[in-house]
Write a protein that binds this DNA or RNA. Structure first.
Lengths: 223, 223
DNA sequence: TGAATCTGACTGATCAACCAGTCAATTAAT
DNA sequence: ATTAATTGACTGGTTGATCAGTCAGATTCA
């Protein structure tokens, strides 16, 4: 009984509402009603609204990033020669995010995360720093090993552009359906994961300033 | 006297505050104080808070997308053979966004846009639809011409992943400085534009399921 | 000319509704 | 019996919006 049942339903309700109406647009009354508890109980369990937001972020980010960490380690452990392919590394990064984004809770959390990642205020930056820098450093180190020809600056920029693409692909905005006039949709998880890995793998390779000389060499990782 | 001076300062102030504190986190009183006018004047000029937000979006999106449209046309007009390179097309898309993102007003608008693009509620989707679908269709048609080997699904997915990367790169979150421990920073406009074009050009090419056979053929556009 | 009229820009005061957070009191669990 | 969980009532402050009214300047009428 590490966590109360009521506290969970408060976090669930707040997650839904924060995703839908933003932090400032969600009131403690709304959360209390959605969770079916008294408003004062939220303060009892979660102290302040600010802290409640961080609890939500902590719950999901640690969950997703633990899976990423495990799969990344698995990548290197099972790889022949100790170096996995770029696609394997990206799969361990993309899949936990996109798959969680399609679970019931993931559709809400992904919207919260996408907005947080694009915020420039100190509070948001500190939260991203706290919960996403450790996993970022692990992947940057992994990418350096998988792409030894890519200069450091390319690894950092590549990682950030990649994460932008992944994070922004998590919320189901249905924009692809509207743009393609119904031909395509964003509800096929496997299709989206495959596209993201393809796109980002090629994009990372393209960042190498030595791409002309190394096309053949690097392409073997992609192909 | 198409637009009042006071109305402009209201839009400017609201843009700053919406970027910093979100839509719901910004009050009409804050906007009035920031703009140096009476609160009621905002309602006189902009009717409702909701409408004020749309006015801000309209002002900047039409500005950026008009430049994109002009440069895209210029690409095709000046290209020998009528087909420009992929990099030229991407430059016409990326540059107006990133450059405006570093002007004084762009630093604010880019944060508003990034959050809007990642929202799934009907209101946000309608706004994106209204102000960004026309330019999206133009670039999708342009990409089809520049990348005739890429299947349609790849063009749509590629365009969306690319826009995610660009939009999320507009706000200066300074995350690259923190991650690289000061070695890199996101205040070099040219460097960032170059990286984004490199990454997205390679990513788009990578989406071709025929990439193995067409590497040489397609690579000429990149190289 | 000058007085009357109109108009768009602007304001302070005010509204009911809502806000996050507090606290004493009550209930449930151990 | 002690602790933990939960509640309703409450506080001081803020919310978006409205409304009657002020005021400068342009327009119209004499």
């Amino acid at each position: 009984m590490a966590v109360t049942k009521a506290k969970d339903s408060i976090l669930d309700a707040a997650e839904r509402l924060f995703a839908q109406f933003d932090y400032a647009g969600t009131s403690m009354r709304m959360i209390a009603e959605e969770a079916g508890v008294a408003q004062a109980l939220i303060h009892y369990h979660c102290k302040t609204k600010d802290n409640l937001f961080e609890l939500i972020l902590e719950r999901r980010s640690t969950m997703i990033n633990r899976i990423r960490q495990e799969r990344l380690k698995q990548c290197f452990d099972e790889a022949e020669g100790g170096i996995p392919t770029l696609e394997q590394v990206l799969d361990s990064f993309v899949r936990p995010a996109i798959e969680s984004g399609r679970y019931s809770w993931g559709t809400y959390f992904s919207q919260i995360l996408a907005k947080l990642a694009n915020s420039v205020d100190d509070r948001s930056r500190d939260l991203v720093h706290k919960y996403y820098d450790p996993i970022a450093r692990e992947y940057i180190e992994a990418l350096k090993k998988v792409l030894p020809e890519l200069p450091d600056s390319g690894v950092y920029w590549g990682y950030l552009i990649m994460t932008s693409a992944v994070v922004s692909s998590m919320p189901r905005t249905r924009r692809i359906k509207r743009l393609s006039e119904g031909i395509l949709d964003d509800d096929s998880i496997e299709q989206m994961i495959e596209r993201l890995i393809q796109f980002n793998a090629s994009g990372l390779l393209g960042l190498s300033t030595l791409s002309e000389q190394n096309n053949g060499r690097l392409r073997t990782d992609v192909g």
